[in-house]
């Protein structure tokens, strides 16, 4: 079932942590701690992502079908790690829509920021 554009926009803007989580999962399915680790690497721990916060974001993403549980984890996966998560098609589209929104914001900031740069120089 294809989503309408407006349906996707309804998810925007995403919380920064949610963006990073989606970004981390979009590279391939991973278990929870793996996602936390790659988010922390992406953001260099700023702002910090705690375990509790991560799983609450994850619950939100799962509920809305942006992320799904992987039914059969890869064979070489460490069984202790538990459930693996993957991004859904919807999740992918929401993430790119958020990217588009950010680009617009960035463009707006840059067009405003350049005169200030000159003043500093």
């Amino acid at each position: 079932m294809a989503e309408k554009r407006s349906d996707i926009e309804a998810y925007l803007p995403l919380k920064p942590a949610v963006v990073h989580i989606l970004l981390a999962i979009s590279g391939g399915a991973s278990h929870g701690y793996g996602v936390i680790q790659s988010v922390r690497e992406q953001t260099e721990g700023r702002p910090p992502l705690s375990n509790g916060a991560f799983y609450r974001h994850l619950a939100w993403l799962l509920e809305r079908g942006l992320v799904a549980e992987v039914e059969r984890p890869p064979r070489d996966a460490d069984p202790r790690r538990g459930t693996h998560y993957r991004i859904t098609e919807l999740g992918d589209r929401v993430l790119s829509a958020e990217g588009g929104r950010m680009r617009e914001v960035l463009a707006a900031i840059e067009s405003k920021a350049s005169p200030t740069d000159e003043r500093i120089a």
């Binding site: 278990h31 701690y33 375990n51 799983y55 619950a59």
Partner: peptide, 15 residues
Amino acid sequence: FRDRFGRGLIDGLHE
């Protein structure tokens, strides 16, 4: 919440 994510939470906290 615990039933669904407890295992993952424990794993993350452990690490």
